[in-house]
Design a binder for these strands. Structure first.
Lengths: 344, 344
DNA sequence: CACATCTATGGGAAGGTTCCCAGTCTTTTT
DNA sequence: AAAAAGACTGGGAACCTTCCCATAGATGTG
C-alpha cells in the first residue's frame, strides 16, 4: 500500500527520474516526441510514489478546469435528475466532473449560481434558464449549451431540446384516436415561456387538423403533484367534467389523477389523463400514466457532447430530439384509425 | 452594463486604486486592520471594472477550492436526489459548490470517482460507500463525512445516518398494531451491509417483543421497482400468500404493489405493504404507499454542515436521525393499542 | 560537405493569488 | 521620555503546473 505523499510535485518526479520537469510534464500529458526511455522512467516513479498532478496548478496555467456546470431548476425533480444522470454518464468517460446547481425556479438564485459558476472558472455550462429574460446570458463569454424550451429564445446559441411540437401532436393524435375531443390543459407556472410554447403547439396542431380550438380550457398550476391536483380541481369546480386532461408535465398529470380519484371519477373511463415527460413515477400509479416521453437522459448526454465540442472551439449547433409515447393505462383504447402523418 | 474584462488581475486593481496588491487582497478577503479609505477605494475600483478574483489562483495558493464532492449511488434515484437537494441547499448559503458523482452501484466506478475527487482537490467529500469494503477510505487524508448505513463500519469517521433500528421498529410496531404477524421482507442486492443491518434490526425487534423470528422469509432483489416486483413474485410462487410485505426501500415496495395487482390480490385488504424511504413517488400510487420515511433532505443538510466543521478543523461527530412513519393507504387500520415504547 | 528538418530535452517565465516578514507611523504603557 | 504595542501597508516568495524558446544531436537532402 503506497501512501499518498502530500507534497510531491512534478519537480520531485523529475529529480527522481533524472529528467527535467518539462519532460515529465510532457509525458504526463501525452505530448508527442518522447523517448520510450523517458516514458518508462516516469511511469516507474509515478507508480512507486503515487504522484498525482495538481489539477489546480494545471488549471491556473492552462486555463481549463475539467469541470462543467449543469444549472437546472430542481435536482429533486425526476425529470431533471434524469437529465443530470445522462450528462454525468457522458462526462465520466471524458474525465470531466459536473458541478450541479439547482436554481429552485428562483431567478435570483439562478443569477447567484451563474456568478458562482463564472467565478469557479468552469470550462462551460449546460443551462436550463428559468428566467424568461436571461438577456445577459451571452455576456458570459463561456461555452454554453442551453437545454429545454427556452432555447428557442436564443437562436444563436447551441442547444438541445425535445421537440415539443412533435410531442404535443403525438399526444393529441393519440387522444383523437380514442375518439376524445380536445382535452383540457394543465400547464406550469414556473416556465411561462415553456407553457406558451406548449399551447402554441396545441394551436398549431388544431390548425393543421382543422379542429376548432377557440374555447381552449387551460389552467395554470405549480409544477408539482399538488399543483396539478389543485389545477384540475379548479377546472372541475367551474366547468363540466372534461373527457380528457393533457398536462404539460408528468407531476401535474399525477396530481390530476389524484383530483379525479378524490371526486370519485374513474380514469380512464370517465376522464383520460395524458402526461408529458416520461418520469419513472408514472409507471407505478394505478392505472399507470400514459405520457409523451421526452428523451431526458439523451438530452443530458447530447448536451454534454455538444458542450465539449464548443469547448474545443467547434460551433455546436441546435439539436431537437423527438418525443415518444409511453402507452400505459390512463387513456382508453383506440377506436379510430390513427391519422396519417402530416406533411409540413 | 460593465463588460467583463478578461485579464484583469489584482495587480490592476492595486494600480488603479493606488494601493499594493497585498492590501487589495486583504480587503477582498475581509481581513482585519484595513483603513476605511482603502476599503472604499477598492470597492470603488471593483464596482467600476467588474473585477473578479481568480478562484483558481486563490485555490492554488490557499489550498482550498470551495468545492465539496457528493458521492452517491444514483442521482436518478429519488431518495438520493433528495439527499443531494438537502446538501445543495445548505451549500449555496456557504458559497460552496457541489460536485456530484453517481457511482451507479459500481465499485469500480466509485473508485474512479474517488480518485477524480482527490485529483480535483475538493475541500471535502460526503460519501455513501457502495463497496462493502472501502478499506482505503481513511487513506485519503481529506475531510470526509459518511452517509448511509455503512457509516457504522467506520466508527472513527464522522457520519450522518438514519436510525434504521428505530425505523424498523416503528414499521414493525405499526404492522403489529394492525394485528398482522411478521411480514415477509424484500431487501436490496446492492448494499449487502445495508440489508444486513436492516435484518439485524428486525431480529433485535423480535427479540425485544418476544416474537419468534426463526422462519423469517427474506427475498433479495435489485434496488428498483422491477427488482421489488420480481422478488415478491418469487415469494408468491413458493410460499403461501403473506399477510404483509416490508420492503427495505420504497422502490421495491412499489414493485411489490405491482406484483400484487398482477396476481389480483388487493392491497391492503389481502396483503399489506410497507416501504422504507419516504420518496415522493409513494404518494401517487393507489393506494398511496405507507412507509417509514428517512429524513433525506436533512441527511444532506446535516452532512454538509458536519463536513464544513471538519474542514474547518473541528472533529465532527456521528449523527443518527430518527425516521418517521408516513401513514398512507397500504396498511389496514390499527386494531390493537400501540405497544408502549420500549426502554433500552 | 553544408544546410535544413526532425526528435528529444532542458530552463526560464508566466499564470494570479495568498502568506510571511518587515517596516512605518500612531497610540498606549511604564 | 523611552519603550512597547497596535494599526496599517508594501514587497518578495511560494503554490505547481504548462507554455515558449533555445539547444543538441540525429537524420535527411541538395
Amino acid at each position: 500500500m503506497t501512501k499518498r505523499p502530500q507534497n510531491m510535485t512534478i519537480l520531485d518526479v523529475a529529480r527522481l527520474s533524472g529528467l527535467s520537469k518539462s519532460t515529465v510534464s510532457r509525458v504526463l500529458s501525452g505530448a508527442p516526441n518522447i523517448s520510450e526511455n523517458a516514458k518508462k522512467k516516469v511511469a516507474e516513479i509515478v507508480a512507486e510514489t503515487g504522484y498525482q498532478r495538481n489539477e489546480i496548478a494545471r488549471s491556473l496555467r492552462s486555463g481549463r478546469t475539467g469541470v462543467v456546470a449543469l444549472v437546472i431548476p430542481d435536482i429533486a425533480n425526476p425529470f431533471w435528475a434524469d437529465v443530470a444522470r445522462g450528462a454525468q454518464d457522458a462526462a465520466v468517460n471524458e474525465g470531466t466532473s459536473i458541478l450541479i446547481f439547482s436554481s429552485d425556479w428562483d431567478p435570483v438564485r439562478e443569477k447567484q449560481h451563474l456568478q458562482a459558476l463564472v467565478k469557479s472558472r468552469v470550462d462551460g455550462a449546460i443551462i436550463n434558464p428559468v428566467r424568461d429574460g436571461l438577456e445577459d446570458i451571452e455576456q458570459f463569454n463561456l461555452p454554453i449549451v442551453l437545454i429545454g424550451s427556452s432555447a428557442s429564445r436564443f437562436p444563436d446559441m447551441a442547444s438541445v431540446s425535445s421537440d415539443i411540437e412533435q410531442g404535443v401532436a403525438l399526444g393529441l393524435d393519440r387522444l383523437a384516436s380514442s375518439g376524445l375531443g380536445l382535452p383540457v390543459f394543465l400547464v406550469g407556472d414556473n416556465e411561462r415561456s415553456a407553457s406558451e410554447r406548449f399551447l402554441q403547439a396545441v394551436r398549431r396542431w388544431a390548425a393543421k387538423r382543422n379542429v376548432d380550438c377557440s374555447g381552449l380550457i387551460v389552467e395554470n398550476g405549480e409544477y408539482n403533484v399538488d399543483g396539478g391536483r389543485a389545477a384540475l380541481e379548479r377546472i372541475l369546480a367551474t366547468h363540466a367534467v372534461p373527457r380528457a386532461v393533457f398536462a404539460a408535465n408528468d407531476l401535474m398529470a399525477l396530481g390530476a389523477m389524484q383530483a379525479l380519484r378524490n371526486k370519485g371519477l374513474s380514469c380512464p373511463d370517465d376522464v383520460a389523463v395524458l402526461g408529458f415527460d416520461g418520469i419513472a413515477a408514472g409507471e407505478v400509479t394505478t392505472p399507470a400514466l400514459t405520457t409523451v416521453a421526452k428523451p431526458s437522459r439523451q438530452i443530458g448526454d447530447e448536451a454534454f457532447r455538444l458542450l465539449m465540442q464548443r469547448i474545443e472551439g467547434g460551433q455546436g449547433d441546435r439539436m431537437t430530439l423527438p418525443c415518444t409515447l409511453y402507452e400505459r393505462g390512463t387513456l382508453p383504447a383506440r377506436v379510430n384509425e390513427p391519422q396519417p402523418a402530416l406533411m409540413d
